[in-house]
């Protein structure tokens, strides 16, 4: 019995080292004054960050990535709102299988999604560009959007909607004045998380990108040139920080959405005597 917690501690320790040690190397070498990625460290420099600004292909790929991530996040959230609202509020034949299908990309290997989309698009004669990447990204972001939004819609007290109708509002007004504001934290959370997923997605982008490279594809292409490695490290560091900020904000809004809904549900429990 005494041994168990200790083994467990060691296991957790090793796990954390393997998970985060490589990530810690990013900032270390991003600021290291040497073109070679190796210890010992030579000195502090910001040159790698400054150098990034003059890489035109990098700047184009950042623009592509931002476009893809923004459009994919908006589309996936809009579609997520429709699917979640329908599923939370209405019963229709085949609801369960349809929802499972929408969630499927969550467990489907991305390489399969990427390859099959590529084959279909090529067969249809569609040329590959940012829009084909957006298509692929909407597909993989949707399950996340739906998971977040479904809980936001399900947490909303149905009586609030009915109260609005009862007070003379029609369905459209009710949606915009009551439902939307109440699920807004969920929507923002879905936007942020989809944006983050799309921004650093590589496999699907790699298959569908054509000549409009996205940032992760650009990074991959740079790995062949050892002299570019410190610059990639600097870029990776920037993306890491950006992702952390976005995910934290996304989580904040997801929790806020759960809180907003729960003030109502606790009251319902009090009231549910009769």
């Amino acid at each position: 019995m005494r041994g168990a917690p200790r083994t467990f501690t060691i296991f957790v320790g090793l796990y954390l080292v393997f998970l985060y040690a490589p990530v810690l190397l990013l900032p270390i070498f991003a600021f290291n004054d040497s073109a070679i990625i190796a210890f010992p460290l030579r000195g502090f420099t910001l040159d790698w960050f400054i150098g990034l600004a003059s890489e035109t292909t990098l700047i184009v790929s950042v623009q592509n990535s931002l476009l893809v991530a923004i459009v994919a996040a908006v589309l996936s959230t809009c579609l997520g709102v429709l699917a979640s609202r329908a599923s939370a509020r209405f019963d229709y034949p085949g609801k369960k299988p349809i929802m499972s299908f929408l969630m499927l990309p969550l467990v489907l290997p991305e390489i399969i999604v990427g390859v099959s989309l590529l084959i279909v698009l090529v067969q249809l004669g569609v040329s590959l560009n940012v829009w084909t990447v957006i298509l692929g990204h909407v597909l993989i972001c949707m399950p996340f959007s739906i998971a977040i939004l479904l809980s936001a819609f399900n947490n909303m007290d149905r009586n609030l909607e009915e109260a609005s109708l009862d007070l003379g509002a029609n369905r459209r007004e009710t949606f915009f004045k009551i439902i939307l504001p109440l699920v807004m934290p969920g929507i923002i959370s879905s936007l942020l998380i989809s944006f983050t997923i799309s921004l650093d997605e590589f496999i699907i982008a790699f298959f569908l990108t054509g000549t409009d490279t996205t940032l992760p594809v650009y990074i991959w292409s740079q790995l062949r040139f050892p002299s570019k490695l410190p610059g990639v490290m600097a870029l990776g560091f920037i993306m890491l920080i950006l992702s952390l900020i976005l995910l934290t904000a996304g989580e904040y809004f997801r929790k806020k959405s759960a809180r907003l809904a729960s003030t109502e549900t606790t009251l319902n429990k009090d009231a549910d005597h009769g």
């Binding site: 007290d157 609005s164 109440l182």
Partner: peptide
């Protein structure tokens, strides 16, 4: 006649106060 056009108003058991 839909609820929003009926000359009735309902006080819900949960009160359904708009939380926002």
């Amino acid at each position: 006649v839909e609820p929003n056009h009926r000359p009735t108003n309902l006080v819900f058991q949960s009160y359904a106060i708009f939380p926002h």
